[in-house]
Design a binder for these strands. Structure first.
Length: 561
RNA sequence: GUUCUAGUAGCUCAGUUGGAUAGAGUGUUGGCCUCCGAAGCCAAAGGUCAUGAGUUCGAAUCUCAUCUAGAACACCA
């Protein structure tokens, strides 16, 4: 319909204006609205109402438009309003029904490496790791659904200063290789990290251990591999629970073998400079409002850093996968690091044509608005959080079923993920365990509940192979059908803006309308066979869409809710 | 200090990039289970979109200033 309108405007005013008909925010008046008459009024120095009326008049002559819309009118200041005809609405739904992926036009395929998760070795996963995991997984599923070839890499932080710190801590306790345990690691890590902030001498020792490890010191290597083994197992367990999976389990340490070749490249391209004993790559631009410090490639003690391994990782990815895009999602506080990194890549011939994106996540705060801590003052571990939510759920006297452990885990996942993903990712949000345990209102369980009670109707009735007829039976019926038509726009917008929250919010609105339909329209005892069939087809489509969208959010469906 | 980001109902948040009467959840008040699942549905109340100017037919959305909060700012990740 954009095309038809564009032609009409061109014919009327000889102006090739880009026409964009939007979903109406006044559903009492129409389904779609065009507000371009105001802009035309300005350029043409005419009354927008006159322009709107002229457009409507021309629309009435167009056989396609009059067939598709039961009402086209111009109102008050100059809005052009369109109301879908029942038959066209159902045509569109039938197209969704009969084509793969609801007949949505997909963007062209690209190979994308998605760098998410970002867990640090030797440190148990805590709430801070929740968003990168859940959000990253959802982005992966969204991009995959939208026809992209996505390679997910956990990219463990496994070779930085923290490893030196932990090794130092283990040495101080005379801990032998075989006595290293997860508990020990999770105790030593925060201890050492605090100690290094106070004591410059110890910090230096840790830095040197890190350096020697990177240089291949066999003793430290042994410790490193043991720590990595133990830690990875634990990290995997948590990611498994969350249904977060990766195609690649690489980390900083895997990038080290590419550093020599990378260094040679950077040297021949004359990118490296000496500065205060370190080797750096300047990335400041004259247009910068604030000075961007140079990218540090190698420290003055010759050790390498996060940035170096990131760059070496890009080198490796380019050689192995040749991706069009690399997307990173981490805490938003790493913003500067990534602008530096991306600027380096723009200067470096090998990586110049890769398209980089950084999706910075807001921090999770406590109810006091400060970074989240437990009552004891610790950052809570994810595992503890899962059991707490599970307990709160089981202690709810209103729940009506016995749950299998599998169903319980699915429900806990739905609670956490829906609570997280409905937020705008770049904004910080307040983490409140009570809110995160909610099962009423705008929550994961609400969606699951809606799905299951609808699905129950379909169990009683055989699915017709037929298409929808031309009839719409009442307002609840129509509201639901109109909502289903939004799907394409929703998926596209979520894809382009990398926002699973768009999907979560749509999913909720869809379920609200589904529940209204449910309460007002009873199917099982219906005598009108055609009506019954239509509604079963409609509910089939609706539940299928709910299921697909839940899957994009990483939420499974339990047998009961 | 500089630069970003934010400030929307008591609380927690949406608001598809400038459109018509600013929306949800939660909390409060009232109504709905002889009918497919009441973790549901329906209704009421709740707002100077931080403040003040400006841009224009039209601003929560764009500009500027002020206030408040948070983040980043060279060898951490």
């Amino acid at each position: 319909m954009n095309n038809e309108l564009q032609q009409i405007i061109q014919k009327l005013y000889n102006i090739t204006e880009e026409v964009n008909i939007k979903k109406s925010n006044r559903p009492d008046l129409c389904d779609y609205q065009y507000d371009g008459a105001f802009n035309l009024a300005k350029t043409l120095h005419q009354n927008p109402l006159d322009i709107g009326n002229a457009i409507v008049e021309e629309c009435q002559k167009n056989s396609v438009l009059t067939a598709n819309f039961s009402k086209i009118e111009c109102v008050k200041p100059g809005f052009v309003n369109f109301t879908l005809s029942d038959s066209y609405l159902n045509d569109l739904l039938n197209q969704m029904l009969n084509n793969p992926k609801y007949n949505i036009k997909m963007p062209p395929e690209e190979t994308i490496i998605l760098d998410y998760g970002g867990a640090n070795v030797a440190k148990p996963l805590h709430v801070g790791h929740l968003r990168p995991a859940i959000f990253g997984e959802s982005i992966k599923r969204l991009l995959t659904y939208m026809n992209q070839k996505v390679i997910g890499d956990v990219h463990l932080g496994d070779y930085g200063l923290q490893i030196g710190q932990v090794i130092y801590g283990l040495q101080q306790e005379n801990c032998s290789l075989e006595n290293i345990t997860l508990e020990k690691l999770s105790r030593i890590y925060p201890q050492m990290s605090a100690l290094c902030k106070e004591d410059a001498e110890i910090k230096e020792k840790c830095a040197n251990i890190t350096k020697e490890l990177q240089d291949g010191n066999p003793e430290y290597q042994k410790y490193f591999h043991q720590i990595l083994e133990i830690s990875k197992k634990d990290i995997k367990k948590i990611y498994d629970y969350l249904g977060v999976s990766f195609d690649l389990w690489l980390g900083e340490s895997d990038a080290y073998k590419y550093i020599p070749a990378l260094t040679t490249d950077l040297e021949t391209e004359n990118l490296l400079e000496e500065s205060e004993g370190a080797r750096v790559i300047p990335v400041a631009l004259p247009t910068d409002k604030v000075e961007i410090p140079p990218f540090i490639y190698q420290k003055s003690n010759k050790a390498y850093l996060y940035g170096t391994t990131d760059l070496a990782t890009i080198y490796q990815r380019k050689k192995d996968y040749n991706p069009q895009k690399i997307i990173y999602t981490t805490d938003i506080r790493q913003n500067l690091h990534f602008t530096q990194l991306f600027r380096v890549c723009q200067k470096y011939s090998l990586t110049k044509d890769i398209d980089f994106e950084f999706l910075g996540l807001g921090t999770i705060n406590g109810t006091d608005g400060k970074p989240f801590k437990t009552r004891a003052g610790n950052t809570p571990k994810l595992e503890e959080m899962f059991t707490e939510i599970k307990e709160i759920f089981l202690n709810n006297p209103e729940h009506q079923f016995e749950y299998t452990p599998q169903d319980l885990d699915i429900i806990v996942n739905s609670i956490i993920k829906f609570a997280d993903l409905q937020n705008n990712y770049e904004k910080s949000y307040i983490f409140d365990i009570d809110k995160f345990s909610k099962t009423t209102g705008k929550t994961g369980p609400y969606i699951l509940y809606t799905y299951l009670r609808t699905k129950k109707i379909l169990e009683f009735n055989q699915t017709p192979v037929d298409n929808l007829s031309k009839t719409i039976y009442n307002v609840h019926d129509r509201n639901l059908r109109i909502k289903l038509l939004e799907l394409e726009n929703v998926l596209n917008y979520a894809f382009i803006s990398r926002m699973p929250s768009v999907i979560a919010n749509y999913l909720y609105e869809l379920c609200v309308l589904m529940n209204a339909f449910y309460e007002n329209n009873h199917i099982n005892n219906l005598e009108d066979e055609r009506k019954k069939q239509d509604w079963i087809i409609l509910l089939n489509l609706t539940t299928k869409i709910i299921k697909d969208l839940l899957n994009i959010l990483g939420i499974d469906i339990p047998t009961k809710m």
